[in-house]
Amino acid sequence: MENRILICEDDEVLSSMIQFKLNKDKLGNIERVTNGKDAREKLLAGDFDLVISDIHMPFFSGMQLLEMVRKEMNKDTAFIILSAEGLESTVLEAFDLGVTDFLTKPFSPGELSMRVKRLLAA
């Protein structure tokens, strides 16, 4: 069965770029949302194998979304946070909330793809 990946990113060009890259590397069926509210609805409606989320999004931040997934929905879906800020406190908070991986911008799409591959294989 194909892996289901959800990309939550309000920058549409960046999210479509990630989608292209993951599609090109045949990593699964990819869906995109541009805000935290839509991401929450998608996650409530179905199961995903992996979520890639930006920190700063309209309605809910990536951190809030991660907290919802772990605490409200009680899901252990693999979760990657993309962030423009690599502050130690932000990274620690994300890991405290149960993030699977953390990537700081600027990032290489090739590296992201490798990390996704590794997480989906685990």
Binding site: D11, V13, L14, M17, A84, K105, P106, F107, S108, P109, G110, E111
Partner: peptide, 15 residues
């Protein structure tokens, strides 16, 4: 604007 913005988001070959 878009190229300038994405250039700040990406590294490696994409940049």
């Amino acid at each position: 604007d878009e190229i300038v913005k994405q250039q700040a988001n990406l590294s490696g070959e994409s940049k």
